[in-house]
Design a protein around this nucleic acid. Structure first.
Lengths: 262, 262
DNA sequence: CGTGCCAGGTGCCAT
DNA sequence: ATGGCACTTGGCACG
């Protein structure tokens, strides 16, 4: 690894940090600061943090993260596209990040720094796979019996007045089935959403079945579901994944067979 | 600043990082790693990230953050309470963070490291303020039209039998107006609170208006409000802030003029 | 501990 | 820009 892709300084002088900032951030590098700072936020809300030990990360896309010793969420932040300025003021190292529309500003005022580091992070966004609602839908389309034996999907993401139906189709008796997919535990809101879709259809169509398909469901949601005369279908995420992977393996094989390099 | 509160190494050997981890994380320090790694997540969902430049932060509360060059959100993470293990495997530095209930596991596999740093971040959770009801009240007093054109505030925090009325005054027709201020989305509870104040006054006074002033309101709260014959007034937090800041600037100017150094 | 609810939600993709 | 919606939402209060 190229040694000048990263550099770090313990207990740096503020002047050196300002200089480092000027040389690094312009080059698309990430800057990491660790020290004691207070924070002021003004914009969609107002927040003010007393001085404390924090990690500040300035990314080349303009994002600014201020993290404390605990928790996944930053105590303060600024979204991508913000403009960062850095200066020395009253013997403090001051970072000011601003974005307009909506106007937001974060000021971090360091009274001391124990560490500063800069490093180059390539931006090329590498491949990411995940299972989401979309993947579950894909699995259900590949293997409709995940919903019910004899289920025939007709369409996905069908727009109705009140939103989009995740999936709908016909059951073995030819009745219309509305399916609401959830990739996580279904709650009352999911039930109400399905109910809303049902209501917007029962006028135009006769008997319609509503199925809430999710890996699990809360007790209250299940009660409400029954109350509305709707149905619950447990979705096995592991099964979805194995369906998708075997399907993709198949696709790759076909691709290779036909000389497709994509 | 104590120099051993932070240390950093450029292009560290994996063995040294493992050793550093053993000495530091137990001491409640934060560890920051920068390098090329691939990531696998398995738990509530499944995700897999190809190798790329990333920043990994391990916090003493068990949180793990994996950040890429862009965006505020981590590309992968693990919540507080997770257990981190670190080892060398196939010439890679492997971090594995696990939590149970629900089971989740993240594995970051470094093929190279450009930087490692450890630092002590005091956990003492310092004071945090956000724009509060008080600041909103201040803004409304400075600019009563935030409530309504012609509104004249009479008093704030008026005690009634059942508590304190945030703000009351007279409308342009001289009718008494009770104002309930909320700094966040108003819920049913806020409506009920206002109703309680109203009820405690309608005996002694004739026609009284009740206004719930908040940046937003839940659907159910709005329904209940209408049911009670009360009114909703949207409060623009940004406007409040600009009123307060311009007012403070003004005050400072006056202060300077009169030689006030505060 | 599960459930409900808010967030400066963030991010993504549609119009 | 605006709106809709999912998110490993995270975090907090509460039963």
């Amino acid at each position: 690894m190229n040694p000048d892709m990263a550099s770090a300084f313990v207990n740096p002088r503020f002047e050196d940090v300002v200089e480092l900032f000027r040389r690094s951030l312009a080059e698309g590098m990430v800057m990491i600061l660790v020290g004691e700072c207070s924070v002021e936020y003004k914009g969609r809300g107002v927040a003010s943090l007393e001085s404390g030990s924090r990690i500040v990360i300035a990314k080349p896309d303009g994002s600014l993260l201020i993290h404390a010793a605990t928790s996944v969420e930053p105590v303060n932040w600024q979204p991508p596209g913000s403009k960062l300025e850095i200066r020395i003021e009253d013997d403090n190292l001051v970072l000011s990040s601003t974005r307009k529309a909506p106007y937001e500003n974060v000021i971090a005022r360091f009274i001391s720094l124990s560490l500063v580091a800069v490093c180059k992070l390539e931006i090329k966004p590498r491949f990411k796979v995940e299972i989401g609602e979309e993947a579950i839908r894909e699995a259900v389309l590949a293997e409709p019996s995940l919903i019910e034996d004899g289920f025939k999907p007709i369409s996905i993401e069908k727009p109705v007045e009140v939103g989009f139906i995740d999936l709908y189709g016909l059951d073995r008796d030819g009745r219309l089935v509305i399916v609401e997919l959830k990739r996580v535990k279904a709650d009352v809101e999911a039930v109400e959403q399905l109910k809303t879709y049902m209501d917007s259809l029962t006028d135009s169509y006769g008997s319609v079945r509503g199925i809430l398909a999710a890996p699990s469901i809360t007790y209250k949601a299940y009660m409400k579901l029954k109350e509305f005369g709707l149905e619950y279908r447990k979705i096995d995420i592991a099964k979805c994944i194995s369906i998708l992977t075997s399907r993709r393996r198949q696709q790759r094989k076909l691709g290779e067979y036909y000389g497709d390099k994509s």
